[in-house]
């Protein structure tokens, strides 16, 4: 079955983004397809490559990266929600004259249309952190 995930929760604040990661890992290892992971609201913080948890804790950003590399996942961060919260890629940092950017590849900034596309092109969209 083809799934998409919508994640609205910041990492570490609630269980939701860790649960979403685990859910995605399980889907993929069970042979399902993940069409897209869409990060919205506070969920955009999962895209920050500056996330630096203690060594003995899960690194959610890194684990999403690893999973995305393994399965060529589409990790989309809502651009409107991200800019408000200070999650910027190189071109947005330049556009807003910021000295630094913090979005880690393969996370990508894009619009809410990607959530609609996920609804249309997936059998199920599962929301985490609503």
């Amino acid at each position: 079955m083809k799934f998409s995930l919508a994640i609205y929760a910041a990492p570490y604040t609630s269980q939701a983004s860790a649960t979403a990661l685990k859910f995605a890992q399980t889907l993929l290892s069970d042979g399902h397809e993940v069409h897209r992971v869409f990060f919205y609201g506070d969920g955009v913080h999962n895209g920050s490559r500056l996330i630096s948890p203690p060594q003995d804790e899960i690194n959610l950003h890194q684990d999403w990266q690893t999973l995305a590399d393994q399965y060529s996942l589409d990790l989309v961060v809502c651009i409107a929600a991200a800019l408000r919260r200070g999650i910027l890629d190189q071109s947005e940092a330049k556009r807003y004259s910021k000295e630094v950017d913090n979005l880690g590849a393969p996370f990508e900034l894009s619009g809410l249309g990607q959530l609609v596309d996920a609804c249309v092109n997936s059998d199920r969209v599962i929301t985490f952190g609503a």
Binding site: Y8, A80, A81, L112, G113, L115, V116, D117, A130
Partner: peptide, 15 residues
Amino acid sequence: MAKECLDALLAASAY
């Protein structure tokens, strides 16, 4: 969340 729901809904209306 309430605002972001409406933002998403209005964005979806274009599709």
